[in-house]
Amino acid sequence: MRKIDDIIIHCTATAEGRDVSVADIRRWHKARGFVDVGYHYVVYLDGSVHEGRPLAQVGAHCRGHNAHSVGVCYVGGLAADGRTPKDTRTARQRVALEALVQLLRLNFPGAGVHGHNAYAAKACPCYEVK
């Protein structure tokens, strides 16, 4: 298993309430030249957690930080206009993200938790990760 020292939270940068699947993200990422979906986990609007890229593989979600991190993405991140950054997490997504991060921190003691915006000039994940 890879050494993991960071859990990086992302959003899909899609309009509030728009359903997006791992298959959709995989298509988008492959169109950009990625080998596979860049995230290890994706949290859907209903709070269900879906595996993206296998955890044993290096992700493609945060330039310069992929080798030793886990990429977690929630569906959403933009207001209904599809342009304005917004914390669109549903109540179920909030609970699921919290539980997933807790589980990852148990599996990878000492790993930090950061939003993508801690490493890039982006609004992603469109809320303050603590």
Rank of each mutant, 00 (worst) to 15 (best):
G33D: 03
H116P: 00
N117H: 15
I25A: 03
R63T: 11
P85E: 09
H61Y: 13
T88D: 06
L106H: 14
G112A: 05
D5N: 15
P54A: 08
D87P: 11
A120V: 14
Q93T: 13
G71C: 08
I8N: 02
A79M: 05
S21R: 12
R105T: 11
L104S: 02
H65K: 12
G76I: 06
V113L: 08
P54F: 12
V95N: 08
H40W: 05
T84D: 05
A60C: 09
Y119V: 07
L106R: 15
E128T: 15
N66S: 12
A13S: 14
G112K: 04
R89S: 03
A13P: 01
A99M: 14
D36C: 05
R26A: 04
A118Y: 08
K3C: 05
V49R: 10
Q93F: 12
D87F: 13
S69W: 10
D6Y: 02
V75G: 06
G17N: 14
L106W: 12
A80N: 10
S48M: 11
G76P: 01
I8T: 09
I25G: 00
R27L: 11
Y39Q: 14
I9Y: 03
A120R: 13
F108D: 01
H68F: 04
R63S: 05
A15I: 13
K130Y: 09
V101R: 01
G38F: 02
D36T: 10
V42R: 01
G112C: 00
G52R: 03
G64Y: 08
V37T: 12
Q102F: 05
H116L: 10
A23F: 06
V49P: 09
Y44I: 04
D5C: 03
V75M: 10
G76Y: 04
L45P: 00
L97V: 12
G112Q: 04
I8E: 01
H65M: 07
D36Q: 07
G76S: 07
N117E: 10
A118L: 03
R53H: 09
R18Q: 12
K30E: 14
G77V: 07
T14L: 07
N107T: 09
V22A: 09
A91T: 15
D46W: 12
R53S: 02
L103E: 15
R105A: 04
C73A: 14
R53T: 10
V72G: 03
K3L: 13
Q57S: 08
V49G: 07
F108K: 00
C11E: 06
G33C: 04
G115P: 01
S69F: 09
R26Q: 08
